[in-house]
Design a protein around this nucleic acid. Sequence first.
DNA 1: GTCCAGGGTTCGT
DNA 2: ACGAACCATGGA
Length: 226
Amino acid sequence: MRVLPLKKLYRTLYRHFGPQHWWPGDTPVEVMAGAILTQNTSWKNVERAIAALKKARKLSIAKLVETPQGELACLIRSAGYFNVKARRLKAFFGWFLSEIGRRAFYARRLDTAHLRDAMLKQVSGVGPETADSILLYALNRPVFVIDAYTRRILSRHGLPKAEHLKYENLQAVFESSLPMDVALYNEYHALFVACGKLCGKKSPACRACPLDGVKITFPTGKWRRS
DNA sequence: GTCCAGGGTTCGT
DNA sequence: ACGAACCATGGA
């Protein structure tokens, strides 16, 4: 049984899976839209929805804001929850337009914690994971993204409580153990997803994956509070 | 037919 | 503060 801290866990995953080249998307707008569309949905289904938006020339901030919800819903049908997600796309880009402007580039002026806070409080349909995915992968901010795969992998390799821990507390485990590095956070989360896809939900332990027989160690103390 | 996928909100307890 | 129902398509 190998025992690894988070830093070495990263190297193990990277050696096995190689660079993941996330986020799959050509522009910041595509990444932000993809972050909303992929909520509880396979990426394969999201790709079709994005292709449909591109073909209809709706994949821009202005178009996403002005196009009627029903029309967007029709285009993103393949991504599931299409009525909900059409509303969320309009809500998010409406907020983005008024808060930041027409270019994602202008977001550089704003503080990361402020952006995250504003998104969570003002945009219905953007929760912690979606907000952090947007911050990290579209706006290049050093925030560590936690998702269901991350929780599942941690819960099977040394942190059984991971499935129930509050999002921000689990996030603090990583951010307090690793250097604050956008490229590192980018790759690390993508590697968790690559690994999580292999393991599956039901299988009690990872076999045929690089974490078979691996126990992860975590920093003790501060992050455990509340 | 059942389960799952790169979540979030709302409404009971 | 926590759990369950809800949203909905497409692949395994």
